[in-house]
Simulated scan of single mutants.
Amino acid sequence: MRRSGLFAALSAFALITAACTPEKQIVSTPAPVPQPVVNSSPYVCKLIPEQAFRTISGITAPLVERINGTENNGDCRAPDASTPRLGVWWAREGSGMPREHMDFLMHEDRRPLYSRYGGISLPPDLGDGMAAYVRSAPFADQPYRVSALFRCGAKERMIDIYLPQVAKGRDAIKDMIELMRIAQKRYGELYNCTPGK
């Protein structure tokens, strides 16, 4: 009886030891570092680098842009059927767009809306603006939004950028801020002014 008890105890010990010894080591692999948002041509909607847009959104489908308006005030959409993949709106202080109206758009329209959804203020060098994920109707088709009111030359300017999605693993707010930084720089190149001055 003693012998069989000892044998049973040793067998149990061997099973427990085997069960607790890993057969293969578990190796954790770090998550891939997201690609940076880079300013390079070609551009979509005049102001947005196509590759940066694709990096941020993860969208690979062809983009066909539709631009309306003038260099002073206009908008552009890169649609897919009836669902826009990218929306960009720009305005310049002047005829048809008084400074007071631009202030109204930023302070009475965009800022309260973005704040309601936990929006983040843009860095001061990008002017007065915010980035936010606005998930309610009528903004659900393009919930990722960034808007800025900034000086470029002697005039105030305004840019809005709307995205339908952000690729998994990316920091949406950080990416939208970088996209605004590029858009303002590109705006200055196109319209011969220096953003922030």
Rank of each mutant, 00 (worst) to 15 (best):
V88E: 02
A8C: 12
P143D: 06
E71C: 10
G58E: 06
P123L: 14
R135S: 14
L86I: 05
V37Y: 08
V27A: 06
V146E: 08
T194D: 08
N39R: 13
N39H: 08
E65D: 13
G196T: 12
I56D: 03
A131M: 01
M1P: 06
R92S: 14
A14G: 11
Y117M: 05
A148N: 00
D175P: 01
I26L: 14
E100Y: 00
E108T: 07
G5D: 15
C45D: 01
N192T: 09
P123Y: 07
Q184I: 02
M97V: 14
A137I: 00
K174I: 02
A172K: 04
D171W: 01
F13I: 15
A137Q: 12
G119W: 04
V33W: 05
D171E: 10
P34T: 14
L47Y: 14
M158T: 00
T17H: 02
D109H: 03
W89V: 09
F13H: 04
R66Q: 10
K24M: 10
I48K: 03
L113C: 04
D160R: 03
S82C: 00
G129Y: 00
Y43E: 00
M1L: 10
S11P: 01
P34R: 13
E50L: 10
N192R: 09
E50P: 03
P98R: 11
Y117H: 15
E71I: 10
S40T: 15
V146F: 01
S95G: 01
H107N: 15
H101I: 13
R99S: 09
N68Y: 08
F104S: 09
Y162N: 05
L122E: 10
I173L: 08
G129A: 00
P84Q: 07
G94Q: 07
E23G: 06
Q165C: 03
Y144E: 00
V27H: 08
V27N: 09
D141I: 09
P79G: 01
P62E: 12
L163G: 04
R77S: 06
E71R: 13
N73H: 02
L6N: 12
G188C: 01
K174R: 15
E93M: 08
P34I: 13
E178T: 15
Y114M: 14
L126Q: 14
W90G: 10
W90S: 10
R99V: 08
C76A: 03
M106I: 03
L47P: 00
M180W: 02
I48L: 10
M180H: 03
F13Y: 08
G118C: 05
S121R: 02
